[in-house]
Amino acid sequence: MKAVLITGTSIAQAQGKEHGKLSAKYKDSVAVCEMDESDMAALKIEPGQTVKVTSPYGSITVKAAKSREPRPGLVFIPVGPWANRLVGPETGGTGTPSYKGLEVEVEPAPGEKVPDLEELMAEARGGNEKW
């Protein structure tokens, strides 16, 4: 399904980070894709199931969630290391990357794992170093 991605802050994300970036609460609060109910129905997915979101800049597996602030065709991923796999690096001379309004593809990804923060950071380092 094609959708427009908005990334941003949310209460859960803001609270989650105060528990520590390495906490399960943080991951649960930001490694999610909040969607309109009708879009979830079209994709035949339930809250908590994994979806793969792909932008022109990368893709990431996160859990689907029902949006409390819905709009059909719009998906929301809270700011964080997961959302940033999708964000556009171009700033257009402003310094600010494109965090909002990205065109993405959302597809069900049954059985795929949502990576941990440690795994994402190890991947960034290009190795498998463990914390």
Binding site: G20, K21, L22, Y57, G58, V79, G80, P81, N84, R85, V87, G88, P89, P97, L117, L120, M121, A124, R125, G126
Partner: peptide
Amino acid sequence: ASHMPWAAVKNLANIPVAVVDPTLTA
């Protein structure tokens, strides 16, 4: 590392970095 695009995070990961912060962050 939590708030920059992935392309930036990858380059940050491969230069010497010092972090001063009350908590452990990405």
